[in-house]
Design a protein around this nucleic acid. Structure first.
Lengths: 225, 225
DNA sequence: CATTATTTTTAGACATGCCTAAAAATTTAA
DNA sequence: TTAAATTTTTAGGCATGTCTAAAAATAATG
């Protein structure tokens, strides 16, 4: 198995993320946006990955991963999430500081290294943002009964089990407002005109969260209020 | 400070190693041998590094590092050695297994990461092969009174304080013969015709070591026999 | 010191991964 | 359902880092 370039690995990872969300073919422009490149570059790379049998690609119709492509993508995600866990748990990084470094570390090529790291961290199931860490065979345990905060019912108490790690600004915002993993939130009211939501944490004063925030937080139901 | 490519970093590191040994200008062919490239590639890169003011380069006369080039080289070596220490001390790698992975990890670009790692490892002074680890300001504490085993006096007892990490085969050989850091060796006899040496470890039977071995082991004097 | 031998540089190529601009295909909407 | 808008691909370029082959400079030797 010849090893892939960092670029190729990034493409596979992003295709995996995008098709996970949409459950269908991934568009050229969609990828270009995530990878900060131009559509023409995407086309070039998809042709190359297609020749390598890592993606199924049909001109003008987008692409999806082959089994082998998905296997590789999952291993990259495994590395990314284990390194993030290492940075937070062992080196005391803040959860908003780990993403960029993990983007570099995820390309280090050594199965022994990553399996040793997994053991060293005691086989963590979730990374610092609450995302599941694939095991060495590529199995991913998704948290059942996880919904987005934006979809949580009014007058319910929920617990934060996941935050979207993509935006540094969001993570800083959440940190600042004590919206960390494990925090319990009471959903008080929703405002359809701007999709914002009023919540309360413990006995702190009520706050309003924008759609941008609530759609990027994963929660699980705890109880009715 | 724009960041350098992996390739550029490797060039700086090797120039540092080579000029450390010879104390003078580094030749194109010398670099080519260490970097597994052709001389013409070296010339190209030296011209580039020269423009970036990281090396002093004169056509046909070889090169040496500028202050800035040396500063960068030392930081790469710091990263390499800290990662090796991490792999051995925390992830239980053997000393012969760490080199290739560290060659990858040394290019990860994050000052916070490497300084955190340094703290996590408790500011180690030497890596698993006995080489000194530069501190964050680039200071390197060379072990005074360290000589090569090949130069040790007959009828003296010495302690292994350093082994050359470059050869995987050598490291495996040393491991197999219990020639690890801290081991005390009695130097019994030298054979000028092939530069081999007879030694004894504790009360084990006497062994003969080739030049290839003794010139790649660093020792310090313990006592007369 | 003149002539080989060696080292180093130049010249020209190639693969990767990206770009812009223009053409082609697809989708949207009047 | 056909014209306009959007998406995607092609064509041609560019920088990086490497190579081979040939030329030039330096070093070694009789």
């Amino acid at each position: 198995m010849k090893s892939l370039s960092h670029s190729e690995e990034n493409y596979l990872k992003e295709i995996f993320h995008l098709s996970g969300l949409t459950e269908k073919r991934v568009s050229t422009n969609g990828l270009a946006a995530r990878l900060n490149t131009k559509a023409s570059s995407i086309t070039d790379m998809l042709q190359k990955l297609s020749e390598k049998k890592l993606v199924e690609y049909v001109k003008y119709k987008g692409c999806f991963l082959t089994e082998e492509g998905e296997r590789i993508a999952i291993q990259i995600i495994r590395k990314h999430r284990l390194w993030e866990t290492f940075l937070v748990n062992k080196l005391s990084f803040g959860w908003e500081e780990v993403h960029d470094v993990a983007e570099q570390l995820e390309h280090i090529d050594s199965t022994k290294l990553i399996d040793s790291l997994d053991r060293f961290l005691n086989y963590p199931k979730f990374d610092p943002h609450g995302d599941p860490i694939p095991d060495k065979d590529g199995n991913i345990v998704y948290r059942k009964s996880k919904i987005k905060l934006i979809d949580a019912a009014i007058n319910s108490r929920v617990e934060i089990v996941r935050v979207n790690e993509d935006s540094l600004a969001l993570l800083k915002f959440l940190e600042r407002h004590h919206l960390t993993l494990g925090t319990e939130i009471d959903v008080l009211e929703k405002f359809p005109f701007d999709d914002s939501m009023s919540i309360r944490i413990g006995d702190q004063p009520e706050t309003n969260l924008s759609k941008k925030v609530t759609e990027n937080i994963g929660v699980k139901f705890i109880s009715k209020l």
